[in-house]
Design a protein around this nucleic acid. Structure first.
Length: 364
DNA sequence: GGTCATTTTCCTGCTT
DNA sequence: AAAGCAGGAAAATGAC
């Protein structure tokens, strides 16, 4: 049987059954300085030149959403396989191949995004402190109500160096005076080089630098804490617990984590249905005229949703509960008697496929 | 900080 | 029996 997940799709070519994906919420025990696979990062967390096809698709959907485009007008046949490097080489006409109606606007949106990335880069070059908790870039656009275009948001006050995260493998950006940024292969980042700093970089303190209390010492403490707790704690008998109804309170130390915008579940599902990389392999249309579709690989869809929400515990059971909540708002309609089948309701927008299940898109 | 919408988590009971 | 469905309950989370 041909794997439906390959398709030359960089993200999907990973072994999706591997449940040991590292996320910030992954158990801190057994953690060393393991680095997140750069391909696990979402597109706004990495340089455009490192975008995979999936990142490009995510970017296009985000642009389409943010630009409040009326109809979904993305030519996946043209877009298929494109990476960030490809996008960087395109002009407006190139973007129009991907979207006849919105190519020009998406192109400007992309240029703005790119300008933002370059400005971040120049901040690093000029040794200005720039730091986020766990990613380099934040959503960089805002709408100008007058001309309906997007413009880079200028945030003049970027708060320097606040590091609260306990995940020791997350990147720390700091002033570069006493430190070096390095790429994964250990080579040094030079501000003038073509390679921008990435979220996969580590920071190093040269041995001759003054050791000052700060991020790194805190990281080290975290690691030693982890090792400590790993070695010290003996298994203790768990009292038999019977929980009451409802969602249990999260442990204190897991609260207050800043999450990024992830979009709504029904839009995520819709996007899977409109993308030949995921339709019909993960989800497929049963009756596109009526908006009826079916989960083909329900657990994998849930896993992808969990990836997006940085929730390694997501599964189809929980995802389907969220799907059922949409019945009330008529985003989805119940399809009685058919397992794994749902239907878009009257309040769902832009789900209508131009090429349902992409019959001509099978890879040889 | 309060409110609201949207999940997420867990559950019981039911159906396929 | 297992998987999926329906929907209640309550907590988490982000947006406003």
């Amino acid at each position: 049987m041909p794997s439906e997940l390959s398709h030359g799709h960089p993200r999907f070519s990973q072994d999706m059954s591997n449940s040991s994906v590292s996320t910030p919420s992954a158990s801190l025990k057994n953690l060393e300085w393991q680095q997140r696979n750069p391909e696990d990062e979402e597109y706004h967390n990495k340089q455009i030149c490192k975008w995979t096809y999936q990142d490009v698709v995510d970017f296009m959907f985000t642009a389409w959403d943010d630009l409040k485009c009326e109809n979904l007008d993305i030519n996946f046949a043209e877009l298929s396989g494109s990476t960030g490097l490809n996008l960087l080489q395109l002009d407006e006409n190139g973007f129009k191949q991907f979207s006849k109606g919105y190519g020009d606007r998406i192109y400007r949106y992309f240029l703005d995004y790119r300008a933002k990335e370059e400005r971040r880069q120049s901040q690093v070059e000029s040794h200005q402190p720039y730091f986020t908790n766990n990613h380099l870039y934040s959503t960089p656009y805002e709408m100008n109500g007058d001309d309906n275009n997007y413009h880079p948001r200028v945030t003049s006050k970027q708060s320097p160096i606040v590091c609260e995260t306990a995940a020791p493998y997350e990147v720390r950006y700091e002033r570069l005076d006493h430190r070096e940024l390095r790429f994964e292969d250990g080579s040094r980042y030079m501000p003038s080089s073509l390679n921008y700093p990435t979220a996969a970089m580590k920071t190093y303190i040269p041995s001759n630098a003054h050791s000052s209390p700060g991020v790194h010492s805190r990281v080290a403490e975290n690691i030693s804490d982890i090792e400590h707790s790993n070695n010290e704690e003996e298994p203790r008998p768990e009292p038999p617990k019977k929980r009451g109804p409802g969602r249990p309170r999260k442990p204190e130390n897991e609260l207050k984590k800043k999450k990024k915008k992830t979009g709504r579940l029904w839009e995520f599902i819709r996007n899977l249905l409109l993308d030949p990389a995921t339709c019909p392999s993960l989800v497929r249309w049963e009756n596109p005229e009526e908006g009826m579709f079916r989960f083909v690989q329900a657990e994998k869809v849930a896993q992808k949703w969990g990836d997006r929400k940085q929730n390694k515990d997501m599964n189809y059971e929980k995802l389907s509960r969220a799907m059922r909540y949409y019945y009330k708002t008529e985003i989805f309609e119940a399809v009685l008697g058919r397992r794994l089948v749902y239907k878009f309701g009257k309040n769902a927008k832009n789900w209508r496929p131009s090429n349902p299940n992409f019959p001509d898109h099978q890879t040889p």
